[in-house]
Write a protein that binds this DNA or RNA. Structure first.
Lengths: 137, 137
DNA sequence: CCCAGTAGTTTGTAATACAAATAATGGCGA
DNA sequence: TCGCCATTATTTGTATTACAAACTACTGGG
């Protein structure tokens, strides 16, 4: 069946890309989760609960994660004056720089894979991934 | 740039599929790594070191992983008569059944995404993923 | 037979993750 | 305004995941 081949291809590529991300993160002492958090925080300033939902983590897990990143000076916590229960999270300048470095490294690491496709196929792949996964559901 | 859009799409789909796999694994007390190990063992009987390399883990990490799976009756260790240092790992019948269940569940979970594509686009996506990622390098 | 190298395990430590309990605040109803 | 429940995040306790270093058992060459 075609759909089984597609499931296999998606799972395979998932583990392959996750492996690349894990390796790049490890070079800078970032777990896959921390790396993803950095990526999310590049263009957002969520509250703890929002970020936990985004990452699919329990809020207690996120407290520890942000603790460690904060001690390393990568992120900071901000209090929300409207609702003082709320804690906003955002990247420090050091965190921003690291995030850009890491994602530059990711682009470089995936470049060989991408260069195996001609520009038209790249566009096709983007559109197909978008159509399949980036939609409601 | 097109290649940046493709990197974004690959990273995004990686986290999305990994999320699905994590959730399905969690329903059966399987981590993403255990789930992947089960998938690999479906059609292989590697030695410990081979499996560790496959998963990108240290051999000491794998010892613990296989210990826990063995206690749950999912895998078994076999001694190699040619070289008695070597330990082969393979699925028990229970492990085989769980692996099939889980991967059936994965197919069901990804079906909605797949069904958004017509058969021709599914083939295209399989070929593009294969061309980009499943090649040398 | 000795010894260097290989295959796995054990031990120690840190990070990741969840659940339950806790603390602080907000907001609604009486 | 007071009381109470809900919300937001942290703390605490436990299991898993992961690595590195030390260790055990075995192999194969000299």
């Amino acid at each position: 069946m075609t759909s089984d081949a597609l499931v296999d291809a998606l799972v395979r590529s998932t583990f392959q890309v996750a492996g690349v991300l894990t390796r790049i993160g490890a070079e800078r002492d970032l777990s896959l989760t921390q790396l993803r958090a950095l990526g999310i925080l590049r263009d957002r300033r969520p509250r703890m609960t929002e970020l936990a939902v985004f990452l699919g983590l329990d809020k207690s897990t996120l407290s520890g994660l942000i603790d460690r990143a904060e001690h390393r000076g990568l992120v900071a916590r901000g209090r929300n004056p409207q609702d003082r229960r709320v804690v906003d999270v955002f990247l420090t300048p050091a965190g921003q720089e690291l995030a850009e470095q890491v994602y530059g490294e990711v682009r470089r690491a995936l470049a060989p894979a991408i260069n195996r496709l001609d520009p038209q196929d790249r566009d096709r792949l983007v559109r197909l991934l978008h159509a399949a996964l980036h939609s409601p559901g």
